[in-house]
């Protein structure tokens, strides 16, 4: 493997076994706030698991998820080189048992065995100043309850809130709460979903720079945490650890919304290469 593939391999291993500090702190805070015994026990075991995974350098969750790379690059980094390096790193990590062979043909359900197929790993490109590779790892538990829909514009902010809260109520314990929520508002149905995913790259507590959006993030977090779903859906005060919204301009006749759930094991990381 060349240097680029090695650096990506290291990123994958680190993200799978080393939960970001802000996420771990948010879980520890949830443990303090929580007053249900059952929910507290769940959070205690999650925190214990985070330490064990870091210590043993093993994947936090057996669902090592699908890998989404957000890459910002200037033109000298050739797209093909980077994509090849990603596949090389993913194949190596899979063969070493650091990634579960999750990627299958959607119709035959037959596994590709090495987690590399057309369109997977998922790679989003944007033009930037240098080469920055960010990795978001999501398991199926949280992905399976994510959704996108185009609302009628006149439902407004209240309609958006209603859709988000309803989605969390219906997801209940399935996405491994306490969850993180990425919400994409505007653009088109595809862009809203991409924005919702990208929103999850923000640090815990990092509010949108748009005051209206920041206010909505806080209101949604409060509304979700009043539902009583709690850790693992066993009942409790802390259902979500944070809500992040990203926005884009949209058509005068549409209001696209995407809601992307992320489990407590919010695995993300990035590297910068020069």
């Amino acid at each position: 493997m060349d240097d680029l593939a090695s650096a990506i391999f290291d990123l994958i291993c680190d993200v799978q076994s080393n939960l970001p500090e802000d996420v771990e702190k948010a879980l520890a805070r949830a443990y303090e706030i929580e007053d249900s015994d059952v929910a507290k026990l769940q959070l205690k075991m999650l925190l214990e698991n985070v330490k064990l995974a870091r210590e043993l350098k093993r994947p936090i969750c057996q669902d090592t998820g699908l890998l989404t790379f957000f890459i910002s690059a200037e033109k000298k980094h050739f797209i093909k080189d980077v994509e090849e390096a990603i596949c090389q790193a993913v194949k190596k990590a899979t063969s070493l048992g650091l990634l579960r062979p999750n990627v299958v043909n959607p119709l035959t359900r037959i596994s590709y065995g090495d987690n590399c197929a057309h369109g997977n790993p998922i790679i989003y490109w944007e033009v930037g100043e240098e080469l920055e590779i960010s990795l978001l790892v999501k398991g199926a538990g949280s992905e399976n309850v994510s959704l996108a829909k185009v609302l009628d514009p006149e439902v407004g902010v209240e309609g958006i809130k209603e859709m988000v809260v309803k989605a969390v109520v219906e997801a209940d314990g399935k996405p491994c709460p306490p969850i993180f929520l990425g919400v994409g508002i505007g653009g088109t149905i595809d862009l809203a979903t991409k924005l919702a995913k990208k929103a999850l790259l923000r640090r815990v507590g990092e509010r949108s720079r748009d005051p209206l959006v920041a206010k909505l993030e806080v209101e949604l977090l409060e509304a979700i945490n009043s539902l009583g779903i709690g850790a693992m859906g066993l009942g409790g005060k802390v259902t979500a650890l944070d809500v992040f919204i990203e926005m884009a301009g949209c058509h005068t006749a549409s209001l696209p919304i995407a809601i992307v759930f992320q489990c407590w094991a919010h695995r993300r990381g990035s590297i910068r290469l020069t």
Partner: peptide, 13 residues
């Protein structure tokens, strides 16, 4: 019975 989701290493131990 519920076991905490995502606690994969703990369960494997």
């Amino acid at each position: 019975l519920a076991y905490p989701g995502g606690a994969g290493v703990l369960a494997a131990s």
